[in-house]
Simulated assay, not measured.
Amino acid sequence: MKLLFLAVFLYLTASHVSASDPSPLQDFCVADNYSKVFVNGKVCKDPKLATANDFFFAGLDKPGNTSNPVGSKVTPVNVMQIAGLNTLGISLARIDFAPGGQNPPHTHPRATEILTVLEGTLYVGFVTSNPENRLISKILNKGDVFVFPVGLIHFQQNVGYSNAVAIAALSSQNPGVITIANAVFGANPPISDVVLAKAFQIDKQLVDKLQASFWMDNN
């Protein structure tokens, strides 16, 4: 029984550790974006070559262009923008919303998100996993904070009469994003309309119409 308990404890500990980005084993690991080596993350460049610019990003004070069909713009600041974030397990994004604008239902496969509203009023929510599929939602105003658990489908919509701005912090250097409508109806090559018609219990003509629509990326 003691051995069994120890095995279960070690398994749970390992599961917890692997549920987020790996911990760094040095002060920093600035990403070498020119390396041809493919690893789970990014290769480090020589730390002696690191400069302040490797840990710096400018321009998050500038509004994103929301002149698009969904009326929102996400400005990410992850390892692709700040090479020094490599192995540090954190990133953020600015999200701008026109009146009525929406950050459509999506997931971050590798990160929990915590959102702070800087301006405006947002209706936000996430859906729990099967079988409950319970919607947990709230209206947020300036200064309010809301958390979206890792991997769950979530959204934000501006329900005010003026522009809205939020900052999202994410628990991964590269959280990833899967926009549900884009992934399902905008896949390349397309998912079979027979498959989607059965999955959504709709006719094939509607699936064909949805697949022919323009599915934009607001990131």
Rank of each mutant, 00 (worst) to 15 (best):
V117Q: 00
V165K: 15
P175E: 12
N182C: 02
A14D: 05
G125T: 01
Q102W: 03
D61C: 06
A50E: 09
Q102S: 13
I178K: 00
L170E: 03
E119W: 00
N65A: 11
Y11I: 08
A14K: 09
G143M: 03
L210C: 03
F155D: 01
Q201E: 08
I191Q: 00
S129M: 09
P149Y: 04
L92Q: 11
G101E: 01
K142S: 11
D21A: 13
S213N: 06
G89M: 07
G84C: 10
G64T: 06
N130Y: 09
G151D: 01
G151P: 00
V17I: 12
G120A: 12
P131F: 06
I139E: 01
T13F: 08
E119F: 00
M1Y: 09
D208S: 11
K48F: 04
F55S: 08
N218R: 05
S15P: 03
Y123C: 00
N158I: 00
F57C: 06
L210G: 00
T107G: 00
K42N: 02
N182P: 01
N133A: 15
D217H: 05
I167E: 04
G143Y: 00
P47T: 07
S72H: 05
D203Q: 11
G100K: 06
P22H: 00
V145N: 06
P47C: 12
G89C: 10
F9D: 07
S67M: 04
I153K: 06
G143N: 04
E132D: 10
V43W: 09
S35F: 07
L10Y: 13
D61H: 14
K73C: 08
F200C: 09
S18V: 10
S72R: 07
L210V: 05
N141P: 04
L3G: 08
G41L: 14
V207A: 03
F97H: 13
L152W: 05
Y123N: 03
G59I: 04
H154W: 06
L60H: 11
A197W: 01
D193L: 05
D46K: 12
A199Q: 05
T51G: 15
V17E: 07
K138M: 03
L6A: 11
P175F: 10
V195N: 08
K204L: 09
V147N: 09
I136E: 07
E132N: 10
F185I: 00
N103W: 02
A7H: 14
A111I: 02
T66P: 07
K62Q: 11
V195L: 11
A166T: 04
A111C: 01
A98M: 03
Y11V: 11
F214H: 05
Q211M: 06
